[in-house]
Design a protein around this nucleic acid. Structure first.
Lengths: 143, 143
DNA sequence: CTGGCTGCAAAGACTTTGCAAGGCT
DNA sequence: AGCCTTGCAAAGTCTTTGCAGCCAG
């Protein structure tokens, strides 16, 4: 994620016909600097830490625009929705700590053929999938 | 799910030291009669359809008690949390329709060995997992 | 009986919306 | 310049809580 540079991101916005604003760039930078998924509140807090004062409604509205344009992605978790940069073509596989709720991204997918199995066994047409692994992260295991 | 009878359910409650009340039995019956997962509003509506007038707060409070006792289970979805009877020892694998949001339960798990792979490749301790397949259900494919 | 459960109403948390002012292209 | 975006405040939605009365054990 860290490899995304601001120019690439701003071009993405322009291409989709959305304006490139400081607010959007700041939100994308926060998500880009983070290896885990962030809630709206966490994004808001990290912006403030960087002395970027942004209204909550602006954060919400921009995340809506970014998700609509598949630049970011909203994912539901037991403790609320979280956001990350959109993984083009990739699946959403996560490691979720049951203690601190930190959510890491698992870049590993062993399940491509599962869709085929479902297709042949049910009447459901599978398109995307999402795998979440719950357990304890390194830090919380030590406690 | 349909096989669960009321006596079994009420004994489960008693065993956990929770009172067996009409409200709890009614909620459990709604979930038991359903092959998919239900939101709080859907549970409330189905109760009303059966002429059972129950306060929203009672639905919330009882779902909290039932989930705490692992009799029901709360699962986060993009369009909000949903509930189902707890699958003892089973995983949570779902087929979620991108059109009508109906959520079916998939009783098939090809991934038991995935945990082992994660254990050997990361510092995360995997305990439970959840797989969601998004696509179109039979009805919505026809539209 | 007695403590937990229920309904009601109100508060709380999170998210969305309307409007005027400001900024991007 | 024109339209989209922003901040602010207010409204909406979903969920939780306090309290008085009720019910299961």
């Amino acid at each position: 994620m860290k490899t995304d540079n601001p120019d690439k991101i701003s071009e993405l916005l322009r291409k989709k016909g959305e304006k490139v604003t400081p607010a959007r760039m700041a939100i994308l930078e926060v998500l880009s600097d983070c290896s885990c998924l962030l809630s709206v509140a966490e994004i808001y807090d990290r912006l403030r830490e960087q002395n970027i004062k942004m209204n909550y409604s602006t954060v919400y509205r921009n995340l809506e625009v970014l998700c609509r344009n598949k630049i970011t992605e909203k994912i539901a978790f037991p403790d609320g929705a979280k956001f990350k940069l959109f993984d083009e073509g990739k699946h959403t596989h996560h490691l979720i700590c049951k203690s601190c709720h930190r959510t890491e991204i698992l870049s590993y997918c062993p399940f491509e053929d599962v869709k085929k199995i479902i297709k042949s066994n049910t009447n459901f047409l599978p398109l995307e999938h999402k795998l979440e692994i719950y357990g304890y992260c390194e830090k919380c295991q030590k406690k």
